[in-house]
């Protein structure tokens, strides 16, 4: 396959970026998208130029590092996969592929196609955990958990924190990311204890970081490589409202302290 690539190039966060056009030839349809980019970078390096920087690590769809916006869709044209799982057989000979970084105010650009997604870590730090210390824990089977809850929690917990939900959302909202974590813990007895405070803290942090609001377009669900459902957002909304209306005021202050 012969392809034309239009790639966003930007030296660092403070410089101005622009699109550059590259040609890659003889790409095997069996190679992965990143192997195609590796080939491109090899060509660029051989010419003595700076290769395209892009985030990637595990290359098996689980670490959530990869983050390319390909032809108008995060992680490319296929459903339920990450960029590193995308294979060139999803494209046609002669295609032009436009590759952009995730775009959102809380994701400042680092270089070329790499953005800084620490904002997602900050949201988890605000409350995405169960406050238990190591040791002194009762037996794992002491509290039975309905299989349905465990399964739903697992569905939500499969989030890889890639940020595709933010990248695809018209409003750069992180509701699916936050909703997934809030849901996971709200569904389990271990997480219920802090549920009210968790949801308030995490939502407040998300707003504070400059993510947009949810307008229920559900692009996030369509682009989530782990196909996490927007029902998790609804569950978070429910939790949030319940917490705002019912939770004791002092709880918020004591939480996580």
């Amino acid at each position: 396959m012969d392809l034309t690539l239009k790639i966003w190039r930007q030296k660092n966060s403070s410089s101005k970026g622009k699109f550059e056009t590259y040609k890659v030839n003889d790409v095997s349809p069996d190679s992965s998208f990143f192997e195609m980019l590796d080939t491109l970078n090899q060509q660029i390096i051989e010419k003595g130029n700076d290769p395209v920087a892009f985030d990637h690590d595990c290359r098996e769809g689980i670490c959530g590092t990869c983050s390319l916006y390909i032809n108008g869709r995060p992680h490319g044209p296929k459903r339920g996969i990450t960029t590193c799982q995308l294979h060139m057989r999803s494209f046609k000979n002669g295609d032009t592929i436009v590759i952009e970084p995730w775009r959102a105010k809380p994701f400042p650009l680092v270089k070329d196609l790499i953005v800084d997604r620490s904002a997602l870590d900050l949201i988890i730090q605000a409350g995405g955990y169960v406050s238990v210390n190591t040791g002194g824990i009762p037996d794992a089977n002491a509290i039975p958990i309905p299989k349905m809850n465990a399964d739903l929690a697992m569905d939500a917990a499969s989030c890889i924190g890639c940020g595709a939900c933010v990248a695809s959302c018209a409003n750069a909202s992180a509701m699916l990311f936050v909703g997934a974590k809030v849901s996971q813990l709200a569904l389990l007895p271990q997480g219920k204890i802090e549920a009210a405070n968790r949801v308030q803290k995490m939502v407040a942090e998300m707003d504070h970081l400059g993510f947009g609001n949810c307008s229920n377009t559900y692009a996030c669900e369509a682009e989530c490589p782990k196909e996490i459902k927007v029902t998790n957002i609804a569950r978070m909304n429910r939790q949030f409202m319940k917490a705002k209306v019912c939770a004791e005021k002092h709880e918020a202050a004591s939480f996580g302290g």
Binding site: G72, R73, R103, N171, A172, G212, N213, A219
Partner: peptide, 15 residues
């Protein structure tokens, strides 16, 4: 929401 994405995409979202 518009302010949450100060730099837009070249290719509009096709989700």
């Amino acid at each position: 929401n518009w302010a949450s994405r100060p730099v837009g995409y070249l290719v509009a979202n096709k989700s």
